[in-house]
Simulated scan of single mutants.
Amino acid sequence: MDEPVDQASDVVRSAPFADLDPLTAYGLWALRSEVFVVEQDCPYLDLDGRDLAPRTRHLWIDRAGAPVATLRVLDDEADGGALRIGRVATARAWRGRGLAARLVTAVLDGAGERDVVLDAQSHLVDWYAAFGFVPSGRGFVEDGIPHTPMRRAGG
Rank of each mutant, 00 (worst) to 15 (best):
R102C: 13
E77N: 07
P4I: 10
A89E: 02
L74W: 05
C42I: 04
A64G: 08
H58R: 04
F140W: 10
P4F: 11
L118R: 05
R72H: 01
V11R: 11
G132K: 03
I85D: 00
E142S: 13
G27E: 12
D62C: 09
L124V: 00
E142H: 13
A69S: 15
D109T: 12
V5T: 13
I85H: 00
Y128V: 04
G81C: 08
V141I: 15
S122I: 03
P54E: 12
T56Y: 10
A8C: 07
V12D: 08
Y44S: 09
I61W: 03
V35P: 10
R114H: 01
L31Q: 13
P4C: 10
A78Y: 05
R50L: 15
V116Q: 01
E3H: 11
P54A: 14
P16T: 15
V68T: 12
A66W: 07
G110Y: 07
R92A: 13
E113S: 14
D48L: 07
G80A: 11
T56F: 06
V38K: 08
Q121F: 06
V35F: 04
I61F: 04
D6E: 09
A111L: 03
G144T: 05
R138P: 09
L103N: 02
V125C: 08
V35Q: 07
G110W: 02
E77M: 01
D21Q: 13
F36I: 03
W29P: 00
V88G: 04
G144M: 05
A106C: 08
A91G: 12
L28E: 03
A89S: 12
A153Y: 06
R87L: 00
I145Q: 04
V37P: 01
V5I: 15
F17G: 02
L47D: 04
